[in-house]
């Protein structure tokens, strides 16, 4: 059941992205930015947490989940450290993903070569 929920919710979030790409001509880079910021906002108004509880990876794997993580992290940090938490919370919570993306990105760039397309 968990898998079905993850499939359905994750799929729907991707469909929203597809509609934005096809209808608004937003470039994928803008889509990514929009989704992250949207994730932050939806968590701020306490909508995203219930969605994560319901759909698990269906809500955390799409990039809105990255935004959710940022927002959850900043809430926790402000709670623990006050004003300083505003600055430390977001990146602390998302550091795993960001570091992984940069490290793996770097390694892949060094190892592989770009190829011609057909």
């Amino acid at each position: 059941m968990d898998y079905l929920k993850a499939f359905a919710v994750g799929g729907v979030i991707c469909v929203i992205g597809q509609i934005l790409i096809d209808k608004t001509k937003l470039t994928p880079a803008r889509i990514l930015v929009t989704f992250v910021v949207l994730g932050v906002f939806l968590q701020l108004i306490r909508v995203y947490e219930p969605l994560v509880k319901f759909a698990g990876a269906g809500a955390t794997v799409p990039l809105t989940g990255f935004g959710y993580n940022l927002c959850k992290g900043v809430a926790k940090a402000v709670n623990e450290r006050g004003f300083l938490g505003i600055f430390t919370g977001g990146l602390t919570a998302s550091s795993g993903g960001v570091a992984a993306a940069l490290v793996f990105g770097f390694l892949v760039s060094v190892i592989f070569r770009s190829k011609s397309k057909k």
Binding site: I21, P28, S114, K115, S116, K117
Partner: peptide, 8 residues
């Protein structure tokens, strides 16, 4: 876009 970029 970059060659390996996954877009439509």
């Amino acid at each position: 876009n970059p060659l390996e970029y996954g877009g439509q």
